[in-house]
Write a protein that binds this DNA or RNA. Structure first.
Length: 415
DNA sequence: TCTGGGGTCCTAGGACCC
DNA sequence: TCTGGGGTCCTAGGACCC
């Protein structure tokens, strides 16, 4: 067994809100929320009132009357997130970025240059603070899972190093919900059999966890609870799916509503695929109804595509099918289009759409080429003049833009 | 009052093949 | 005529994470 703790997990604290407080000193020490209609991020001062991300703005104001709403500086988030990751990369190339504000690093290969993992972690924190003006918490442990838990325990603005000699004492005293993969449902089910700490979970027979949470979860949790996390740092990860969604408020479930919305979503997804020369074989739509329960419909194509019109037509067919199956639902509150089974587009053949099975709808190769060229033309115009220059504008369709496009882009993973 | 948007992974049943 | 088991793919739903 490896006896040294060389995995770092670094996590910027309340990232977006901290950036706003860094940029505007008058916001420091104040409860602030980035966003308006919906809270995208809350400062620690706001979190103390129970304000959190994804919360409707009115609810946040209710909880915290003095809450200050600020517009996001999204390009700054990207720049500063990248800069924080770059600090880790100054120590080792063994860096795995998880999101805009979070990454793992394995410093096993660079301790002879920079000192112990704990010293490296302290230096990272100091540099991010002095060079970027941002608080960052770091956990250091023998495995990724434990390093991540350590950084959560360290928050806000702290450092926790877990000594391998006492790691199980540390881990087993913590509540189960700190474990990766334990959310509200698993937590409640475990609580029902009296399991509240990771130690109790570790000492519960596997078959009773399996009965409760399924086989994969049972095996995973057993490994994590004994700190046997086999995952290694993966420096290059590609997304296995790409999608887009839009909350609609409350809209009638009618073609005049969902056709333009799907066109816009398909446009966003297909553009992203084409920008990375990717094609998708499986198309999935999600329709959420007024009561917030949702259904999905999907289809796997014979040949993959990245053509906007093809994606839009397939999405439309799938939504029609979903609505046919739920004739009593008259109102929709969200539409989503997602693509998966992604592959590299080696040549134009792969971009030729073959679509759904019925021959009547299947476009011939000639039309396929025309669509391919139309997409390419739009892509080029956008490269020069910006995304809004051409295409299916959301403004023209009356789509409520509760979330800026710049915020969406921050969450996109590398395709 | 009304509840975001980007993803990953797992389960279970059915189709289909060997 | 009926019976079998394993493997893979597809689809729908759901939990979870940032």
């Amino acid at each position: 067994m490896e006896t040294t703790a060389t995995i770092l997990h670094a996590d910027l604290d309340a990232f977006y809100a901290s950036v706003e407080q860094m940029l505007n000193p008058s916001l420091r020490g104040q409860p602030i929320a980035v966003g308006g209609g919906v809270v995208l991020a809350a400062s620690y001062e706001a979190k103390a009132f129970g304000v959190h991300g994804a919360m409707p703005g009115w609810r946040a104001r209710e909880l915290c009357p003095d809450l200050i709403f600020v517009d996001g500086h999204f390009s700054e988030y990207q720049r500063l997130g990248d800069a924080a990751i770059a600090v880790l990369n100054d120590f080792t190339p063994q860096v795995e970025r998880i999101s805009i504000d979070e990454a793992f690093a394995d410093v096993a290969g660079c301790t002879h240059l920079f000192g112990s993992p704990a010293e490296i972690a302290a230096t990272v924190r100091k540099r991010v603070r002095t060079e970027l003006g941002l608080p960052i918490s770091v956990g250091v442990a023998r495995t990724k899972h434990l390093a991540k838990i350590a950084s959560q325990v360290a928050k806000p603005d702290g450092l926790v190093v877990v000594d391998p000699a006492t790691e199980l004492e540390f881990l087993h005293a913590l509540p189960v919900e700190l474990m990766w993969g334990v959310g509200p449902v698993a937590r409640a089910r475990l609580a029902a059999i009296g399991v509240q700490t990771i130690g109790q979970l570790a000492n519960t027979p596997g078959y009773s966890i399996e009965r409760l949470l399924g086989r994969a979860a049972s095996e995973k949790f057993a490994a994590l609870a004994w700190n046997r996390d086999p995952r290694e740092i993966a420096t290059h990860r590609r997304a296995h799916s790409a999608g887009a969604q839009s909350a609609l408020g409350r809209k009638p479930a009618q073609p005049r509503v969902f056709i333009p919305a799907l066109r816009h979503l398909a446009d966003r997804v297909a553009s992203r695929l084409r920008a990375k020369s990717r094609v998708a074989r499986t198309v999935t739509v999600r329709v959420r109804f007024a009561d917030l329960h949702s259904v999905t419909r999907s289809v796997t194509l014979d040949a993959p595509t990245s053509a906007t019109v093809i994606l839009a037509e397939i999405a439309e067919e799938l939504v029609r099918a979903a609505l046919r199956d739920h004739p009593k639902e008259r109102t929709i509150s969200l539409l989503a289009v997602s693509t998966s089974q992604l592959a590299q587009a080696h040549d134009m053949q792969l971009d030729l759409p073959l679509g759904l099975a019925d021959e009547g709808r299947r476009p011939g190769a000639r039309r396929g080429i025309a669509r391919f060229r139309a997409d390419r033309a739009i892509d080029r115009i956008r490269d020069r003049f910006g995304w809004e220059a051409v295409g299916y504008g959301s403004v023209a369709m009356g789509l409520s833009r509760s979330v800026p496009d710049a915020f969406r882009e921050l969450a996109e993973k590398e395709l």
